[in-house]
């Protein structure tokens, strides 16, 4: 069993792409308003705040109220981006998001950063690993997870175009750039990154796990094991046709996410395939436990989310 090699790629954080894209959007569209809950430096909304101070509102450390004010702004015709860490943007004000935003189908874009365990050293209180699961249960909600900073730009732009609520899940650390500028994004999108007519395994990955899946997929392919790797960037709506067609061509489906295995991408894929094309699904993610402190890379090792860990797990499973 050889070592999994990682190619050196250019790195950028999805939140950096978000901050820059907001400024671009704000220049084009004067209806765009941004709110933050005292984390504008971290979420990068400070770039927008500097450029358009009259359209930026720091709501203080009061996320439930921020969602309500955003709903009021949206009811007044604004497109509102609200940002803070994912855990405070979704888990704390969930009921506000449900009743004020989703139920009224309002133009509030919850653009959260610092999702998942890649927050790192701050530990479990700051690591949202349940956000996709809870938001996925809401009618009208869109959920998009960029795999890199290039897709983050396109996703943020698509969120502004959509009429209705959107959740964008972004991360703290710099991550490898896997797409080039030709990348386009639409709601419901999933991209096949590595393909095979008949595969031993299909890896459906989202967010930061897309890169790990690609690295693992290349390694398996180099060893003669046919694989499919898909970036499921739109969790809701999810690309039913593509996922079913991939499941039909693979003996095993594996989901990969920096999120609890309960109710996120893994949950969505299991729900879908159990009804449309029953297939064995292996869910890789945070295995129904909370996170803890550590560097992002130490945590990815600890929770078995690196390409190396996934490779070993799959080899064992495929043997």
């Amino acid at each position: 069993m050889g070592k999994v090699e990682k190619k050196k790629l250019e790195m950028q954080a999805t939140r950096d792409a978000y901050g820059k894209t907001l400024v671009e959007l704000g220049t084009e569209n004067h209806n765009i308003v941004v709110m933050d809950a005292d984390l504008s430096a971290s979420t990068r909304t400070e770039l927008f705040a500097k450029k358009f101070p009259e359209r930026f509102f720091n709501m203080g450390i009061a996320e439930a109220n921020m969602i309500g004010y955003a709903a009021g702004m949206a009811l007044s015709g604004k497109i509102v981006f609200v940002s803070t860490f994912a855990i405070f943007a979704t888990l704390r004000p969930f009921e506000q998001i449900r009743n004020a935003v989703a139920a009224q189908n309002l133009n509030v874009k919850i653009a959260a950063t610092h999702a998942g365990i890649s927050v790192g050293e701050d530990g479990l209180s700051h690591q949202a690993i349940e956000d996709v699961a809870i938001l996925r249960s809401l009618p009208n909600m869109h959920i998009f997870i960029p795999a890199d900073s290039v897709s983050a730009v396109k996703i943020v732009k698509e969120a502004a175009r959509i009429n209705g609520p959107v959740y964008i899940r972004m991360s703290r650390p710099k991550t490898p750039i896997i797409y080039d500028e030709t990348y386009e994004f639409n709601a419901g999108q999933a991209n096949i990154l590595i393909d095979a007519p008949e595969a031993r395994v299909a890896m459906l990955a989202t967010g930061n796990m897309v890169y790990e899946a690609m690295v693992c997929g290349e390694k398996l392919r180099s060893e003669g094991i046919p694989v499919i790797v898909v970036d499921v960037s739109s969790i809701k709506p999810i690309n039913k046709e593509l996922i079913v067609s991939v499941a039909k061509r693979a003996r095993l489906v594996v989901t990969l996410e920096e999120h609890t295995i309960v109710g996120g991408l893994g949950g969505a894929v299991c729900e879908l395939l159990s009804e449309e094309y029953p297939t064995k699904v292996m869910r890789i993610g945070i295995n129904d436990v909370f996170g803890e402190s550590g560097t992002p890379s130490a945590l990815f090792q600890h929770f078995g989310l690196t390409a190396e860990h996934i490779y070993r797990k799959l080899i064992k499973e495929l043997r």
């Binding site: 009259e54 439930a64 004010y69 709903a71 009021g72 702004m73 004020a100």
Partner: peptide
């Protein structure tokens, strides 16, 4: 605005007032 979940209407009213000011 839809209301009923207590505590939320005032925030929504605030947001509408803020949009008006802006």
């Amino acid at each position: 605005s839809s209301t009923g979940s207590l505590g939320q209407g005032i925030s929504i009213a605030g947001g509408i007032a803020l949009a008006g000011k802006m």
